[in-house]
Design a protein around this nucleic acid. Sequence first.
DNA 1: ACACGGCGC
DNA 2: TATCCGCGCCGTGTA
Length: 588
Amino acid sequence: MLVAELSQASLLTLDTETTSLDPLSAQLVGLSLCTVPERVYYIPVGHRDQADARAPDQLAWDEVLNQLRPYLESPKLPKLGHNLKYDLAILSRHGVMLGGPLWDTMIASYLLDPGRRSHKLDDLAEKFLSRRLTSFAEVTGNDKRPDCFAYVGLPEARDYSCEDARATLLLWEIFRPELDRLDLWPLFSEVEMELVPILAEMERHGIIVDPAVLNLLSVEFHADIKRLEQEIIRLAGQEFNISSPRQLGEILFEKLGLPHGRKTKTGYSTDIRVLEELQRYHDLPTAVIRHRNLSKLTSTYIDSLADQVHPKTGRIHTSFNQTVTATGRLSSSNPNLQNIPIRTHEGQRIRQAFIPAPGCLFLSADYSQIDLRVLAHYAQDPALLKAFRSGRDIHVETAAEIFRTHSAMVTTEMRRVAKTINFGIVYGMSAFGLAGQLNISRKEAATFIDRYFDHFAGVKQFMHDIVEQARTNGYVTTLLNRRRVLPDINSTNRMQREFAERTAINTPIQGTAADIIKLAAIQVDHRIRKEGLQTKMLLQIHDELVFEVPIAEQEATTRLVKPAMESVLELSVPLIVNISTGANLAET
DNA sequence: ACACGGCGC
DNA sequence: TATCCGCGCCGTGTA
């Protein structure tokens, strides 16, 4: 009956039930399928009874596959799911390469409103279908086993799973016309959905960390932390918890009587800026800064990365989340591989622990100044366009303007200030924010900003226009028509309104950069396939793609990646990609 | 659950 | 008068 339906279907909705959230170890328990919301089928294949034997009344997966494979793998039949990246990974491990256009209600919901807090099926069903779905906790009861779903009775599992598949299809019937109406279909089908299997493969492949390097760092840093603890206690004259900002504040500002600066809701601020200021008066802050640096690296990166090496693969498998950020960027979690330290020497040593597979090297390809290039394109500012078209150092050019000198006379310090301003511009920063960032007076900051806008008048005009556009429309868009609503843009609360105004400036820039890097990942993936290379894309870090490249493919990959990334979109200024290679992440 | 602090782009 | 630069994830402390 299902098969008869499938042969007529124009869309197949599916939802997998498994033994684990980790697709690398999850076993398939059941699969629900539907082509219309009125009839949903549940196929139990991996249920266990209470004695942990195979439950009766199930189908053998091989026989199910004999019947269903042509439809599941059909390149013509579109597949709909909620968070299809997961189902894709599960089915792939069970011998099915899901084919056809992929449509995902989680991503559809995200494109329709990227600012929404949750795109979970249960929450969307409640909001758009006025239906309360049975939660996973309700169907698995008190069972705390990681593979608890396998022990759910067949009727209960069927009802639960079918409910989810049906809700997915009903949501799709709402979202699909909305995507069309808001002109989001190309972004959805040609960008976001193309990215899904690519991200799934990046996650599956993972990245190697060298446990020997991590162990060495762990031992060394723990010893340093221990020594610093002794010194801090000596300098403070008493024991206390250095990791507690509250206790640290009491020591610094009450016991030692050092001058306190800003206060937070809960007490004195003890952040890095405050501690650096206090170094003039006492040796304690210096030791605390060093202690903070080392404990941060140890707890967040060294020890926890070692814990997250997958037992089956010996690699780290992050999750790339496609429905989290308000701007269109990806995020990475469990662990976050988009914030591995880079600036400090200790950070570089952590990067050394990330290594390519034997016989391979890492190749990193990053867009040069992508945010400012996007700004140049939007603003059509003659000076900014000229600087990028002539290939000059944008921060040096900016410094020459705001310091009223020639670019040949720009010092590294002047360049640093200009760089801060350039980043601030992208974020819609005020004179107040810039002053705080550069530790200069507000008047000086205002002078820099005035001179900046004097020279880059097109940027000023752009910032004005985009805020105006946001006020009129209630939303802003990127070059690929990604949209973000700004409910507070006309708020009477000045703080809220100004925040929305900064968002109106930043989102088209950051979001367009996100569009570009997503297009790049898709293009590069397709070309790698076409050329039959073994190179694997491992990471996306906002403006950078990192690959694991067999040594013999280094040249071919470089020749492929750079032009592919530079030609994904034609802006008014060139997109420039820098390539570097190395035997670990520190070397790239 | 929330605040703080800190890592990345 | 006060304002405190956009987007994330995560560890720790505190309640």
